[in-house]
Structure formats: structure tokens, C-alpha cells
Simulated assay, not measured.
Amino acid sequence: MRIGLLSFAHVHAEHYQALLRSMPGVELVGFWDDSVHAQSYAERYALKQYLTPQLLLAQALDAVIVCSETSRHREVVELSARAGVHVLCEKPIACTLEDAEAMRDVCAQHGVTFMTAFPMRFDPSCGELRQAVHSGQLGSILGVNGVNHSENPSVHRSWFANPALSGGGAVMDHVVHLTDLLRWCFACEVAEVYAALQWTDGAGENGTALDTAGIVLLTLTNGVQASIDCSWSRPATYPRWGHLKLDVIGTDSLMVIDAFADHLTVYPPDLTRPVQWLGFGVDPNQAMLTAFLDAVQRRQPPPVSWQDGYEATRVVLAAYTSAQQGRPVRLRPARCESTEDPGDGQGS
């Protein structure tokens, strides 16, 4: 399969290129990136650079991974769909619902598969949680506490701190992951959103205020209440980028998920470099890429659909509205606009 990478803007792009090159039967044809760092990416990873996305898309590609700034997702997805190239799109899929809907429409018009990049669905611990919920192992669910903290990603890519490009700060960056896991595990939608956010002056590009932390309270359509503690609170010296955790409290049992707990602590011998936590075990990103390429090759619906990305984006935008208005926001049930089967999220 011939694969292209549309931009190195997202921090995940570097990991994706390494994984794609390790996969049998996959050729990473090259990449497009129009930043000042594009040439350095080409040299560092020995990748062929294309000066425009159109030139890359003209290389008889089967699929692309979209890793541009969030505000540019619509632009590159539309180009890809019109070229008949299938798309795996980074999360959040768009800054606005209008852009998300336009991406859906163009992919449907050209018969192109669109998959949202939610790798945590492919994490074994999250899969065990979903199975425990569906089997009734935990009894009636009383509540869920979720945590997703990280360092400020603008240390690595400055555009994350520019809401015009990213759509927002920590809430936009983190809440989509846990929202998707809740929807997937409980097989229901979010009915109500309430959010209290911390706005940090000067944290955004050009010294603007940016949301760097928040508590988001969700009520699901099945009555389960969940909290999401999201922040960019980890310092640049933290041993890993951050973490994702879930506490699911039931009448019969409590299940705790710490998705990145499996790690080795590495102490550099000269102590001039920071301590690192190196993860081991299954890489959910690799499982996600495998599932996407398998769906494209078999001409089957992807295991994570456009609708999944859309619903998570709806919740994030409702959280910002709630914080601005100081009240809960009710979400109207969204008619499923996608013809894709959401599947089980495990690439089966």
C-alpha cells in the first residue's frame, strides 16, 4: 500500500512515519509540509518531500495520514477526497462543526473512507474496560472519573497555543479522547456538558489567554455521570508527555485504568538529561494504523468513523460554550450522518 503523510505539524507525525516504515507491505511514499522545518524533516527521516499536497496526492496513493494543524484539516481532507485517496485524520477532526460536516460530505461524494485517529480505542486496558461494562461485571455504573494531563504541546509545536490554528487549548486537545472512550465503552451519547475552565494569561501565541486546565462534567444518555480532568499541567521535565486514566465505579466493582502505567524508568548516566519513562507493550498507535490500512485494503468501514470524531468535537465545543455562559449545555441528539459502521474499535 502506498501511503503519504500530509504535514508534520502534529507531534504524532514523527511516530507515525516510523511505524509505517516498519509495517510489511506498506510504502511511505513521502510527505508534504510547508513549515520552515520541512527540509529538516526530510533530512532527519530520509523522506521524499513534496512541495504541495497536490503533488503528493498525484503519486497513486492508497491513503494519507492527515497531521496538519487542526484548522487546516478541512483543506487537506478535501484535496485528498477529490484525489480519491482514503484518509486517517488526527483528532480533533476540526475546529468547527461546519468544517467537520464539509469533510464528511466531500468524502461521501468521492467514495473515500474517513477514519478518526482515536488510538486509545486500541489500547488493551481500554478494551478490557469496555468488555467489563458490556458484560455487567461492574454492576450498575455509579460514575466515572477521567484524567488526561500532559505537558504543554506548544513546547514542541507552537501552533497548539494559537486558537486560530488549534481551536483551543487543553480542552480541545484532551477532552476528545476521553469523550470518545466514554461513548465507545457505554455505547451511548453525551446528553449534557458542564465545564469550568482555567484561562492562563499569556499562554497562547502572541500572549493571548488560553485554556490550560479544566473540569468537564458529562451526563450520558444512559444516565451515567462522568468527569474529565484535563490540563497541560505537566512541566517540560516530566518523564513522559502525560497520562490518561479512568476510574469507573460500579455497584459490584471498581475498575481503574492507567493506560500508560507500563514503563521503564531510565536514568541517564551523566544526569545532564532528564529521567525518562519508556513505555512497553502494545502500541495503540500501531494497532490503529493497522486497522485503518486493513479497512482500506478490504474496502470495509473503518473501526472509528467520522461520526465518532464529530461527536467528540461537539462535546468539546459545548464545553467552551458552557464555560462562557456559566451553565450546563444540553446536546440535541445528532442524527447519524455517516454510512460507516462504527465497529468495535479493535480493527476486527
Rank of each mutant, 00 (worst) to 15 (best):
G127I: 07
D99H: 12
A100M: 02
M103E: 08
G143C: 03
C107K: 03
G146F: 04
N148Y: 13
M120G: 02
G111L: 03
R104N: 11
F114W: 12
E98L: 11
N145G: 11
P124V: 01
V147N: 08
L97G: 12
C126P: 00
M115T: 02
M103D: 03
D123L: 04
H110D: 00
C126M: 12
I141K: 07
C107A: 09
M120Y: 14
F122D: 03
S125R: 12
A102G: 05
V112F: 03
N152K: 09
T113N: 06
S150K: 06
V147L: 15
G143R: 09
P119S: 13
A108Y: 07
A100H: 03
Q131A: 13
R121H: 14
N152Q: 06
C126K: 01
S135N: 12
D105Y: 05
T116Q: 01
N145H: 13
F118I: 13
D105R: 15
G111M: 01
L97A: 03
Q137H: 11
A117I: 01
R104T: 05
G143I: 04
C107D: 07
F114T: 01
D105M: 11
P124W: 00
N152Y: 10
S135E: 13
G136P: 10
D99E: 13
A100C: 02
V144T: 10
G146H: 05
R130H: 10
N148Q: 15
Q137I: 07
L142N: 11
G136Q: 05
S135C: 06
E128R: 13
C107E: 03
D123T: 06
L138A: 06
G136A: 05
M115R: 05
S135D: 15
R104E: 08
A102F: 01
C107Q: 05
L97Y: 04
L97D: 08
N152L: 08
A100Y: 03
L138C: 09
F122Q: 11
F118K: 10
R121Y: 13
L142S: 07
G127W: 05
P124H: 00
E98F: 04
P119Y: 11
S135V: 01
G127E: 10
V106Y: 02
N145L: 07
E151K: 15
A102N: 09
D99W: 08
F118W: 03
D99K: 05
A100P: 14
E128V: 04
G139P: 10
E98M: 11
T113K: 09
V133K: 06
G136T: 10
N148T: 00
T113F: 07
A108R: 14
N148I: 01
Q131S: 12
A117T: 01
F122R: 13
H149Y: 12
Q109S: 14
T116L: 02
V147G: 04
L142R: 15
A132R: 09
L142F: 04
Q109Y: 01
T116D: 02
F122W: 09
R121N: 07
M115V: 01
L97T: 13
H134W: 10
D105F: 05
A102R: 13
